[in-house]
Design a protein around this nucleic acid. Structure first.
Lengths: 105, 105
DNA sequence: TGCTTACGTAAGTAGCAACTTACGTAAGTA
DNA sequence: TACTTACGTAAGTTGCTACTTACGTAAGCA
């Protein structure tokens, strides 16, 4: 669970999620938004985002198009919502379990 | 802004916030919930949480009592809420500004 | 005045994470 | 076929971070 939080805690990855929020974008287009770092660095960030499940990859020719996995985002959001509002005891179980947020889809 | 996210991305700090969510607790009581690490480690986590503004400190004799700063938590929550739902353009400005989330109190 | 309690903090270490350069590879193109 | 495009990945470096041990300090107590 904190994997998702750690993933979003990195500003560039947070920005990447925002970039592919409503439309899929190719890796090169995403990298173009970060002139300060290498394309390779962005590719690795995309790898982290993909492994965490926050974004999905689709191949099209030589290009790889990325888009947000809104379902996974919804699970993270549900977790945080329960964190803010209520169910603190239940949240404890979820946060400590090895298979977090079971049945929250 | 990502300072708050980074602070919560650490599991132990997330748990500490949960511990002092509804009632203030002394540092020793908090440390007692983490037998695997030293009291010093928890003290440093408390420092991070305090500097990020997520928790408040109150002295009482030799003891230091900690409690959640719900107002600061509300600001983080508001930021994330706008992240999930809407205002992606406005969110971009907030996330990139040096003085984030101005006027969101 | 000592002594103890309840803390924070300084200093050092190990591991991780974000980055770079260099290389590998699959898909189009001449 | 050879070349280019569009990407991922391996390898190495640097800096941060979570942790430990050791020490400092303010408050209460004998």
């Amino acid at each position: 669970m904190d994997t998702l939080l750690k993933t979003l805690a990195e500003p560039k990855r947070c920005e990447i999620v925002r970039l592919v929020w409503s439309e899929e974008k190719a890796a090169a287009d995403i990298a173009a938004h970060f002139p300060s770092v290498t394309r390779s660095a962005i590719s690795q960030h995309l790898g982290v985002l993909r492994r965490s499940g926050l974004i999905k990859e689709r191949r099209e020719g030589t290009r790889r198009l990325y888009s947000v996995d809104h379902q996974e985002v919804a699970r993270l959001r549900a977790f945080l919502d329960s964190f803010w509002t209520d169910g603190l005891e239940r949240l404890r179980d979820l946060a400590e379990s090895k298979e977090p947020m079971k049945g929250m889809t």
